[in-house]
Amino acid sequence: MTHAASPRTYVIVLLALLALTVVTTVVAHIDLGPGNSAVAMLIAVVKMLLVMLFFMHIRYEARLTRLFAGAGLLWLLFMIGLVMADVLSRNWR
């Protein structure tokens, strides 16, 4: 049996997630230039990590589980990275 987090932890995580939702909504209304997209994505990644680490028990699972959790994300980066490498440089001369 793996050890999981306590209900207390879950409550704290939930509060953090809700706070981050408010923050991301408010920040979106402030002009940060290109920074807006970056902040929005950064907050989303933090929220994802919170859910994965605590709700999905990645903190307590075997390394192998983390490997597969990471593999999907890494492959997504391959996809977005190489597609955007094409899209962004298509009109260079």
């Binding site: 190489l82 490498a85 094409d86 899209v87 962004l88 440089s89 298509r90 260079w92």
Partner: peptide, 14 residues
């Protein structure tokens, strides 16, 4: 995978 797209209009740099 992009080597299937060399002449398809893909960026030459990609």
């Amino acid at each position: 995978w992009g080597h299937h797209m060399f002449v398809a209009g893909q960026s030459i740099y990609a």
